[in-house]
């Protein structure tokens, strides 16, 4: 099945395997992806998808301590910073 065949319920293509990045000539610039939590997600699942290692969940938790108090409590619709 090609990616074009793999469509979501709304008839739009699936872009879940998109890889992204960014950089700047400005010194000490920080880069992060914005990820919207979906039902069934956990920080380790997101870390596995983004970094290839579920054990890297702490990196995501540390970047979102302003909105996350407990790493086991994330909710669909929350927008998390995923450091690059």
């Amino acid at each position: 099945m090609t990616s074009e065949d793999k469509k979501k319920d709304d008839g739009m293509p699936d872009f879940s395997d998109v890889q992204s990045g960014a950089s700047s000539t400005a010194p000490a610039a920080s880069v992060y992806e914005t990820y919207e939590v979906k039902a069934g997600d956990s920080l380790s699942k997101i870390a596995k998808r983004v970094y290839g290692k579920g054990a890297s969940w702490q990196k995501i938790f540390d970047a979102n301590k302003d909105i996350l108090k407990d790493p086991n409590k994330i909710f669909p619709g929350q927008k998390l910073k995923i450091p690059k």
Binding site: V18, S20, A29, V31, T34, K81, K84
Partner: peptide, 8 residues
């Protein structure tokens, strides 16, 4: 995709 750069 949505990516952000914070810079000074």
């Amino acid at each position: 995709d949505e990516t952000t750069i914070e810079l000074n």
